[in-house]
Design a protein around this nucleic acid. Structure first.
Length: 179
DNA sequence: GCCAACGTTGGC
DNA sequence: GCCAACGTTGGC
């Protein structure tokens, strides 16, 4: 659902790499974000390099974007309404939560007059392209793996930004890289 | 602050 | 295109 616009990438990417090189007093976190394949796909992210993850209008997802997602965190990129629906690749957080400008824009489909610049209601992060899998890790396939039964993807339908455990992340990536 | 109506998500 | 699940809104 998150429609999008490209943003400059070099400075934020450098910041991300610096943060990751800081020697890890804080463990990296993992996430999954959903996007409708025909609205904004992993191919669009590959083309853009970096994008603002705008348009999220759910409070639980908002809280994760605003408070929990950190530079360097890795993100499974999920195609909802895909053929098939499934995880298509990996992105990385390169800018932490900041007010979603589309909420202030009356011309945007994500406009929300209740969000004011002096008291913003909706937040976004910037995500950078990392890789596209050679194949989609389908929702049905994920359902079939016992170690993935706890994924929020299966337990929390409709939540468009959600946490993923390190083990879940590792497994899904392994599946996706197998052609 | 309850909860029915409403709207959205997203698989099928 | 259908519709179940479920989050949000708003009347009271």
């Amino acid at each position: 659902m998150e429609g999008n616009r490209a943003r400059f990438g070099t400075a934020v990417r450098q910041k991300a790499e610096e943060a990751m090189g800081q020697g890890g007093t804080v463990a990296k976190n993992y996430w999954l974000v959903k996007s409708e394949e025909d609205v904004y796909s992993i191919r669009d992210l590959a083309r853009d390099g970096v994008t603002g993850w705008e348009g999220v209008r759910n409070y639980e997802a908002r809280n994760l974007l605003r408070d929990r997602m950190k530079v360097g965190d890795e993100v499974l990129f999920y195609h909802s309404n895909g053929r098939p629906p499934g995880v298509a690749g990996i992105a990385r957080v390169v800018r932490e939560g900041y007010p979603d400008p589309t909420a202030f824009d009356a011309a945007s489909p994500y406009f929300d007059p209740r969000s004011r610049p002096e008291n913003p209601r909706w937040f976004q992060v910037d995500l950078a392209f990392v890789e596209a899998f050679p194949r989609i890790v389908g929702l049905d396939e994920i359902r079939g793996v016992p170690q993935l039964a706890g994924m929020a993807l299966l337990r929390r339908p409709r939540l468009s930004v959600q946490p993923v455990s390190p083990e879940e992340f590792r497994l899904v990536v392994e599946m996706g890289r197998k052609g």
